[in-house]
Nucleic acid binder design. Sequence first.
DNA 1: CAGAATATTGACAGCGCTGTCATTTTAACT
DNA 2: AGTTAAAATGACAGCGCTGTCAATATTCTG
Lengths: 342, 342
Amino acid sequence: MKVTINDVAKLAGVSMKTVSRVINKEPSVRKKTFDVVMEAVNELNYQPNLAARNLAGTSSFTIGLVYDNPNAYYVIDMQNGVLSRCKDEGYELVIHPCSYSEANMEHDFKTMIKRSRLAGLVLTPPLSEQSSITNLLDELNIHYVRVLSGRPSEEEQDTCIYVNDFKAAYEITMHLLNHGHKNIGFICGDKEHKSTSERLEGYKAAMADHDTETNDAFIYDGKYSFESGVEGAQALLADDNKLAITAILGGNDEMAAGALFASRLMGIQIPEQLSITGFENSPFSRQTWPKLTTAHQENDVISQHAARLLFTKTRGARNQDKDIITSFTPSIVVRDSSGPKL
Amino acid sequence: MKVTINDVAKLAGVSMKTVSRVINKEPSVRKKTFDVVMEAVNELNYQPNLAARNLAGTSSFTIGLVYDNPNAYYVIDMQNGVLSRCKDEGYELVIHPCSYSEANMEHDFKTMIKRSRLAGLVLTPPLSEQSSITNLLDELNIHYVRVLSGRPSEEEQDTCIYVNDFKAAYEITMHLLNHGHKNIGFICGDKEHKSTSERLEGYKAAMADHDTETNDAFIYDGKYSFESGVEGAQALLADDNKLAITAILGGNDEMAAGALFASRLMGIQIPEQLSITGFENSPFSRQTWPKLTTAHQENDVISQHAARLLFTKTRGARNQDKDIITSFTPSIVVRDSSGPKL
DNA sequence: CAGAATATTGACAGCGCTGTCATTTTAACT
DNA sequence: AGTTAAAATGACAGCGCTGTCAATATTCTG
C-alpha cells in the first residue's frame, strides 16, 4: 500500500540514499543508476513523503501564498498559478489570507511559519507593498518573492515580479486619445495601493505625451470596488462635466463595471456617448454590456513565475530556472465599451 | 529560535510525552500537570511541528479541500471557512482544484494523498455528487465530508453537509407568487448539478402549492454562467412570452445578473415590468442595478461545519464536536430586483 | 494500613526521509 | 600495470513528534 524510499531502493538494488539523490536531482549519480532508480520509482509509483522530507531536510517543500485582496478572481488566479508550479516541483502550498488591519497579523504569520517550516512565501499586492511585512520576514529570515505593481528596479530584480501597470495604463490611455478623446476621466482605486498611483501616472504620462491637458476634476479618488465605480462615474459625470468627459478609465474592471452601470443609469450610451475601460481582464470585464475594453493581466502566469522565482531562491545554486520572467506588461484588449469620440 | 517539544518538557519539568499528551488533549493528565505544561507552552510560544506530527502519528493534521467550481466567490468562501477551523484546530489545509473531465484526476488525487498523508477531504459540489469520486475514496480508505445540495437523508447524515436548495427555491418562488406573479420563468443551471434539480423542484413545488400551473416553456435549460443568464432571459422573453412572463428566477446570482442585463437591453424595466431573483447572495447580487433579491447561502459557515464534521470523524470518539450543523437552508434576501406584479 | 486497582507519567523506538562522512568504484594519470 | 585523484555510493544518525509499554504515583478496597 504505502511505498517508501526503502521499497524503491530495494527494487532498484541501491541504497536508500541513492534514491534520495535521484529524486532530488543531485549531481554525481551515474546515468545508469539514475535510470534504474527512476524505473523503480515509476514501477512502484513512488511519491516521496512530504512530511518526512520537511522534517529531515534543511530546506522545506512547503511554500506559502499570502494575500489580502478582496478580489476573488485575482486570488484564485494567483493560487492556481502557484499551485500548478508546486505540483510540478513536488511542493506543497499553504494559503494564507489575512487582512493588514488585523492586529494579530504578525502573530498569525509566526504561527504559520512555526507550524510548517516554509521554504518561502509569495506575497501579493497590496500586502507585498508593506515594508512592515518585508521587514518582519527579513528579521525572521524567511525567503519571499513579491508581486508588485511598478517598473522593475535593479536591486530588487531577483525577489520581485513586476507588473508594469504604468505602461499598460499609458497604452490604454493612448488608445482613447488616439480615438479622439481629450477629456478623459480616471477613477482611482485605493490610494494605499501602489497599482493606483502607477496606473494614474501612466494615464498622466500618456496625456502629457499627447499634449493633452489633464484636469484634476477628471480624477476621482475611489476604492477598488463596484460601488466606488458607480460613485466615481456619478461624480465625474455630474452636471458640470457631463458633456465634457467622453471617456473614463476605470482603475480596475470592477470599478469600470460600476461606472458602466452608473452611466447607463444616467441614460448615457456606451460607447457612443462615453467610452469606458477597465483594467485586469477579469470576468467582470466580460459580464457587462457592452463588454469592457481592458488591460489583460495574466495573473496565473505571473504567479507561476513568482513561484518559480521563489524556488530558485530556496534551492541554492543548482537546479536554477533560467526562463523566469520578472516583468509583465498587461496588454490592451479592445472590446466594445470604447470607441471613437463622436 | 526554534522551540521543540523537548524545550517545553524541560521548562515544565516533565517528560516529552506528557507535553505531547497535553497538546493533544489526551485524558489522564492531572489538572496540575496540564496547567504547568500549558504555562511552559505559552511562555515559549510553542507551536508543534506539523511535519513531525504527520510523520510520527497514525492520524494526520492535514486535510484537503477539493473543488471543481468555476465560481471564484464560492471557492474563496469555502476555503476561508475551512481554513478558519483548520487554524483553530492546528490543522493544515491543502487545496485541490481539479476538473472532473481531466482523465488524470484519479492520478492527481492519489498523488496528493501520497505526498501528504491526509486526515480527510472536504468535497464541494458538483464534485461531491460524483459517485465515482466517493467510490475511489472509499476504496482508498480516505475520510471525507461532502457538501451537497439536497434534503438530508438519514444514512448519510454523518458524512454530509446539506444545503436545502429545494426549500430556499420554494420560498423564493413563494415570495414571487405572493407578489401576484403567476407566469414565472426559471433559468436552470447545469443539468448535471444536483442544485439545479433541487432548485427546480422547489420552484415547481411552490407553484403547485399555490395552485399555479407551471409551463414548460417557462423553464430554460442553461449553465451556471452569466452568458447563460443572458441567453435564458432572451429565450424566455422572446416574442411569444414577452408579455406573459412577469418574473424570472435565476439559477444563481451570476445567471440572474445576466438575465437582468439582457432584460435591460430589451428595454424592460426592473422590477416594474419584470422581477428577477438570484440565488446564493454572492457579490454578483450586489453588483447589479437594481440589486438582486436572492437566497443567502452562508458558504463560509457551511464550510466551517464541513471541516468540523471532518475533524470529528478523524479524531475518533474523544474530542467530539457536538454543535455541528449539517443542514442549511438559504434565507431569502429581498432587495430591489423583485416587486409586486403591476 | 497492607494490597490491589487505577490513574498518571516516562523511556524509548521509529515514522520516512536528508545530511554527514566513510567507503567503494571508476577515471586519470605516470 | 600501479598509483592517485575524483566520482559514485552507502551506512548511519537524527529531524520532532507519537505509539507502545513499562514504571511510578495515587486512590480505593476491606
